[in-house]
Design a protein around this nucleic acid. Structure first.
Lengths: 259, 259
DNA sequence: TATCATTTGTTCGTATGTATC
DNA sequence: CGATACATACGAACAAATGAT
């Protein structure tokens, strides 16, 4: 049948052949690929080789495999959910966020106490092991089934200054922004976006398919003097969601930045 | 030794045991894991089982394996490069971007003509198969070795209105912004962030390790009337880079958004 | 430079378990 | 229940990269 030789390993040749067949349209999205036995015959290789090739395509996110059924070409569709990371304020002082109201809480929020890690400490401009109030939420968008994990972290330091914050660490972000604004703070925000492979428990709770990275957003609410007040983290599967920002040119000379 | 039974598959039990050993610190970051033979003895399983467990940990991004040497615990360090996606303007009209000058071109930029895909067409508010000028660059940050792929796409439609753009589609973005501004356009930008697993050629050109997602940024330059003028794409390995944005609350009521 | 031991990569074979229909 | 298909597990052999001798 389709013999090729180039890239070295047999299973990679098979993987390349299947990949081309997919991209060329021979195997349409959402369609069932030939079974392992059929692929063994088609490329005249053993089962381990076929499985190795399939494993490579899974790692690339090209196909999905379901036990007892077969391998499907992933519908590689664009994300169905665009998270517009903007914040607006009504004349009455209420904060409104796009997508702010699509989420439903899948379970009761869990409040707890924790300490800064190297990572969260850096974002909050604190040392490691500083005390925090925390609250974790599991969010679901009912219209698409997309799941996301949200976390709010409030340093003790900040809670002492604004005691209202610590009373109920599981308020919605918009409520925090309002509280702080009514307390006289002028807020601004910065957000950092990372992508990584999910930990096993993240994969489970967000029901992520194979080879699906997660987008990890960290939003820091800053005070007037640029001091960090609150850290919010949002984790969502990158197969379903994308995030978007608006950028406007400012007049200040930009400085080079480096971590 | 360390026997466990819970989660079903033997190789997953082994993987879980190794994962715990890593997270507990028994296997320090950057250290060599026991060899396959040693793991076989330690857990009393066959080589395929050990390799399966290792494959699982690779897919999680927990370890890195090098042919002929062994498996290393990934140093799971934070990204070394923070891309601040801001745009500033000096009083002389020059555009300045943080990180705009850290990149060096690894090879000569490649200019070409192309057509909109479903994806790029959507971002440019064009149909599919509309003609475009394009330019691809391979960028390198010498101080960290980080590689990135940059692409500029300019619709024919826009080039007709602003012929200056089409003359040299491989200018730097800042030059385009200046050209457009001098031509009387008031610019604004929106940027969309996605994460996905790299295609094989992307992995190769950016020299990405296993199980490393890429951040895929799409920046659209808008005209005064919100019409898209230019599309820029930036792809970079998520193991090295993160992106950051600034958010300020505006007074307009925010609307819900959906793709 | 060349060789060798170690370690991972690739490929075959075979058998059995389990999910789906 | 049976047929099909993927998942798991063992065994064996050779290839290829690495580092040290």
């Amino acid at each position: 049948m389709s013999e090729i030789q180039r890239p070295g390993a047999l299973y990679q040749q098979v993987a390349a052949a299947i990949r081309e067949a997919i991209l060329s349209g021979e195997f349409a999205p959402d369609s069932l690929l030939p079974s392992e036995a059929q692929l063994m015959a088609r490329y005249e290789v053993s089962r381990p080789t076929v499985r190795n090739a399939i494993a490579a395509l899974r790692a690339e996110g090209l196909i999905d495999v379901r036990h007892g059924k077969g391998s499907f070409v992933r519908s590689s569709g664009q994300p169905v959910l665009t998270l517009e990371r903007r914040i607006s304020r009504t004349t009455e002082g209420k904060f409104v966020m796009p997508n702010g109201d699509i989420w439903q809480e899948a379970e009761a929020p869990a409040a707890y106490r924790a300490r800064t890690t190297k990572d969260t400490g850096h974002l909050l401009q604190l040392d490691t092991d500083e005390a925090l109030f925390g609250c974790d939420r599991l969010l679901i968008d009912p219209s698409t089934g997309t799941r996301a994990m949200h976390r709010t972290l409030i340093p003790f330091e900040v809670a002492e200054i604004v005691p209202l914050l610590a009373e109920e660490p599981c308020k919605r972000p918009a409520a925090f922004y309002r509280l702080l604004t009514e307390d006289g703070h002028k807020l601004s925000w910065s957000e950092t976006v990372r992508a990584r492979m999910p930990l096993p428990d993240e994969r489970a709770t967000m029901k992520l398919p194979d080879a699906t990275p997660i987008l990890h957003l960290a939003r820091v609410t800053h005070d007037t003097d640029n001091r960090p007040l609150i850290l919010e983290e949002l984790r969502v599967g990158a197969d379903r969601a994308e995030v978007s920002y608006r950028i406007t040119a400012d007049k200040q000379p930009a400085r080079r930045a480096r971590a």
